[in-house]
């Protein structure tokens, strides 16, 4: 999630972008829940459906943002993300209302984000979906630096921008889908982690991508421990913990960015 956030920030040239705010997580959630509700079999179908959901979501967000003008205005893009997320939320609400009560509670808990389903097999599924995209984002760290400058400067410095953008859409969707399928929607990780890294280690993706990967994993482990122990024996969903930390962090970033 953190790596995806870093890549999306370069793609849309907006330090406030992350898979959650741009609607990818929501799209992946709709895809995954739809697959579960329709009883499309097995652990492999859920991430696949989540991938389709995420890809549709980012496609929609990008198209919506383009409607407003020739270039993509970052503010419009975030707005489009909010709208698509709300739309996804409505679809989820409809699915929940139409399914039976027992399923509902399970899906709700899963969607709020958590590692309760963690097992070696789940990790295997995750790795199958995430390894290649992660490797690609590291491999493409220099074009990401250039893309952060803007599309035209990136072209002048040797990047095939259209191809890179297409690949980033797919990569970000795959990574988001892999995360959502195994751990539900855990918000703000993709926003806060890249920023923490940017503040300490700078903005070059050669460092940013691997550092976001490591820090994201570490902090989520900490958040998970906190979620399990803070109100023991009751448990909080991890997504609640990250949102409790992430929203104030987002407010701070928004203030700095607006200056």
């Amino acid at each position: 999630m953190a790596v995806t956030g870093a890549a999306l920030q370069a793609l849309v040239r907006n330090p406030l972008a992350d898979p959650y705010l741009l609607g990818l997580s929501g799209g992946a959630g709709v895809g995954a829940v739809l697959a579960i509700a329709l009883r499309l079999g097995g652990p492999w179908a859920v991430p696949a459906a989540a991938f389709v959901g995420a890809l549709v979501a980012i496609g929609l967000v990008y198209r919506l943002a383009l409607v407003a003008g020739a270039g993509v205005d970052p503010r419009v893009l975030l707005l489009a993300g909010v709208v698509v997320s709300a739309f996804g939320g409505a679809i989820l609400g409809a699915i929940f209302s139409l399914s039976s009560a027992a399923e509902l509670r399970n899906s709700m808990m899963w969607l709020l984000g958590g590692f309760d389903a963690a097992s070696w097999r789940v990790l295997g599924v995750f790795m199958a979906y995430a390894t290649l995209p992660l490797a690609y984002l590291y491999y493409t760290n220099r074009p990401l630096d250039l893309l952060s400058l803007g599309e035209e400067p990136a072209q002048f410095l040797g990047t095939d921008v259209e191809r890179l953008k297409r690949r980033l859409f797919v990569t970000a969707s795959l990574l988001t889908a892999a995360c959502v399928a195994v751990s539900g929607i855990i918000g703000f990780v993709g926003l806060v982690i890249p920023h923490a890294v940017r503040m300490v280690l700078g903005h070059t993706h050669r460092v940013l991508v691997p550092a976001a990967f490591l820090l994201g994993g570490t902090l989520l482990t900490v958040a998970d421990v906190a979620a399990r122990t803070a109100f023991a024996p009751r448990q909080l969903p991890v997504g609640v913990v990250t949102a409790l930390v992430g929203v104030p962090a987002f407010a701070l970033l928004l203030r700095r960015w607006a200056k």
């Binding site: 952060s148 940017r198 700078g202 903005h203």
Partner: peptide, 10 residues
């Protein structure tokens, strides 16, 4: 290029 507004301060 003419216009370039850096978002990330390298």
């Amino acid at each position: 290029p003419q216009r370039e507004e850096p978002v990330f301060p390298l």
